[in-house]
Computed example of a mutant assay.
Amino acid sequence: MKTVLILDDEYLIADILSFALEDEGILTVTAGRGQKALEILDRERPDLIITDFMMPGMTGIEFAEAVRARDSNKNVPMILMSGAQAHLGAERPDLFVEVLAKPFDIAVVLAKVKALLDMDK
């Protein structure tokens, strides 16, 4: 079973994404802060990471850079979801395979996640 790490300090958004992905048969792990998500990466091996941009402690870009610096996670695909800062993620294709704007269309998110996890067959 595939696992997705969801990092968003807005718990309602993390819960919506988590419930929608779990309905598709995807395991999820959530975190509200970048440091907590890095701790989760020490235990879990997610197949995909979805991160917000604006969060306390570190931005989504800082988090993604920290993930890429770890040998065990440097190839995990990451999606950035953001409102006003989406353009900053689009400038970093070395970090993010997709950049999705908030508010998001859950059907679009599910389709992107399933394609990246190679589950759309």
Rank of each mutant, 00 (worst) to 15 (best):
M1S: 04
K2Q: 01
T3S: 09
T3N: 02
T3W: 01
V4C: 10
L5N: 12
I6D: 06
L7H: 06
L7Q: 09
L7M: 08
D9V: 04
D9C: 03
D9R: 12
E10S: 06
Y11F: 07
L12D: 12
I13T: 14
D15Q: 08
D15K: 13
I16F: 08
I16T: 10
L17V: 14
S18K: 14
S18Q: 07
F19K: 10
F19S: 09
L21Q: 04
D23A: 14
E24F: 02
E24T: 03
G25L: 04
G25F: 04
I26L: 02
L27R: 14
L27F: 10
T28L: 05
V29A: 03
V29N: 05
V29K: 13
V29H: 13
T30F: 08
T30Y: 04
A31H: 10
A31I: 04
A31Q: 05
G32R: 06
G32H: 12
G32N: 08
R33A: 14
G34H: 13
G34Q: 12
K36S: 13
K36H: 15
K36D: 15
A37G: 09
L38M: 14
I40V: 11
L41T: 13
L41R: 07
E44F: 05
R45T: 02
R45S: 12
R45G: 01
P46Y: 09
D47K: 01
L48V: 01
I49N: 10
I49D: 10
I50W: 03
F53E: 13
M54L: 15
M54T: 08
M55A: 11
G57W: 10
M58P: 05
M58E: 11
I61E: 05
A64P: 10
E65A: 14
A66N: 14
A66V: 13
A66W: 11
A66R: 15
V67Q: 11
R70P: 06
S72K: 13
S72L: 01
S72M: 05
S72D: 14
N73P: 02
K74R: 15
V76I: 15
V76Y: 07
V76Q: 08
P77S: 08
P77D: 08
M78G: 05
M78Q: 13
M78R: 06
I79N: 03
L80Q: 12
L80W: 07
M81Y: 06
S82T: 07
G83K: 12
A84T: 15
Q85T: 09
Q85Y: 02
A86W: 00
A86D: 02
H87W: 11
H87Y: 12
H87G: 04
L88H: 11
L88K: 15
G89V: 10
A90D: 02
A90Q: 14
A90G: 15
P93G: 06
D94Y: 06
D94F: 07
D94M: 04
L95T: 12
F96E: 03
F96I: 05
V97W: 01
V97G: 13
V97F: 04
E98H: 15
L100A: 04
L100W: 03
A101M: 00
K102S: 11
K102F: 00
P103E: 01
P103L: 01
F104L: 01
F104C: 01
D105F: 00
D105N: 11
A107I: 00
V108L: 02
V109E: 02
A111N: 05
K112G: 03
K112R: 15
V113W: 09
K114C: 06
K114P: 02
L116V: 00
L117S: 01
D120T: 14
D120L: 01
K121G: 08
